[in-house]
């Protein structure tokens, strides 16, 4: 088991180097660079900088150096000094920008993941063991509705309902008076009163799909002979279902835990923008739009690290959970 983990971890290193290089190249691919985008934005606002000034800015940011040199400067700072570079647009270190938002992003996303599973697994198990019952049909209808309605639309509807009928202050994570206040119980309460909309929106979208997956997996497993064996031992239906087929049907869930990690980080960008959430998703979108290459590059690098690490975690969990994989 330890050798397995070590082996996988070592394999991850060349993968990460390759990914970091590719992501840096891709960010540079669109015509123009940050200075072009910045000048365009200024022109839009009615101001103007001369080509000479643009050239000076490029020199200053090192944008005229060959790409490999820029890449090396960027990656060696990260690896050797933990310095992710400087966001040109925000005029601030990338690490502060990202880490500030990271905690909130992780909190929201993990809470919604837990909520998604808490809804999807019991409902999926119920739907499968009572196939074609009234509740199964009801869950199916809700499932397809949840899957069909775009998250951002659901977010808008909930915001409108909360604002118009419940007279709640929605959008963002804090009311203005708590925005810069130090942490206190009142601030926490305020956070929770804002948090339910993003949680509901993110969890319903995810749960709708997972219910279908869980139901299909369970239907496959419930027909297997080992389930009949378990019944023939005299176990109650609840014990049979939850100890045997659910254990096997959860495998696909566990193998996708790894993908949840990068998804947690990038979040649901559109929903986050609509709900004005201070998470990492909207920041990434903005960085890409402005060709803010160090910020965008760092984002993509972190995403890839999360993907690789997440896959590693999935593999380990799966090996721990399913003896057929562990001993293979």
């Amino acid at each position: 088991m330890l050798a397995f983990i070590g082996n996988r971890a070592l394999l991850a290193i060349p993968t990460l180097i390759f990914i970091s290089f590719i992501s840096f190249v891709i960010i540079q691919l669109p015509p123009g660079d940050y200075v072009t985008a910045y000048a365009a934005q200024l022109r839009h606002a009615g101001e103007y900088i001369s080509p000479l000034q643009e050239e000076m800015m490029r020199d200053q940011f090192g944008l005229n150096d060959p790409m490999i040199v820029q890449y090396w400067r960027w990656i060696s700072d990260i690896v050797l000094r933990g310095d992710f570079g400087y966001s040109l647009e925000w005029n601030a270190p990338v690490s502060t920008l990202i880490w500030d938002r990271l905690m909130l992003t992780l909190a929201i996303s993990s809470a919604s993941l837990v909520l998604t599973w808490a809804i999807a697994i019991p409902v999926g198990v119920y739907s499968a063991s009572r196939q074609y019952s009234f509740l199964d049909h009801l869950f199916t209808v809700f499932g397809f509705l949840g899957k069909g309605i775009p998250d951002f639309l659901l977010a808008l509807i909930l915001m409108w309902l909360a604002f118009a009928y419940l007279n709640m202050d929605v959008g963002g994570l804090f009311s203005p008076e708590f925005q810069n206040a130090p942490w206190s119980l009142a601030k926490l309460g305020n956070l929770l009163s804002h948090l339910w909309i993003p949680l509901v929106v993110l969890a319903t979208g995810g749960a709708a799909g997972l219910i279908r997956v869980m139901r299909a997996n369970m239907l496959d497993e419930l027909g297997k002979p080992y389930v009949e064996t378990a019944y023939a031992q005299g176990l109650s239906e609840a014990r049979v279902v939850w100890t045997y087929p659910v254990r096997v049907a959860l495998n696909p869930f566990i193998s996708t835990v790894g993908w949840a990690l990068p998804a947690l980080f990038s979040g649901d960008v559109i929903t986050a923008v609509v709900l004005n959430l201070p998470t990492t998703g909207p920041l990434l979108l903005q960085a890409l739009k402005m060709q803010d290459m160090y910020l965008a590059g760092s984002f993509i690098l972190i995403l890839s690290v999360f993907t690789v690490v997440g896959t590693l975690i999935s593999d380990i969990l799966l090996a721990w959970f399913d003896p057929r994989i562990r001993n293979a």
Binding site: K224, P225, Y226, E228, T229, A230, Y231, A232, Q233, G234, L235, S236, E237, T243, Y244, R247, V248, F321, D322, P323, R324
Partner: peptide, 30 residues
């Protein structure tokens, strides 16, 4: 089918062996 009474007979007074030894045991339990 799921009464407590039949569950006390199954496995205790009547044991059952199935055709497919490959699939009749849970793959994830010893």
């Amino acid at each position: 089918r799921n009464s407590r009474a039949i569950r006390q007979v199954r496995g205790k007074h009547i044991g059952m062996i199935f055709q497919e030894p490959m699939t009749a045991l849970s793959p994830v339990h010893t």
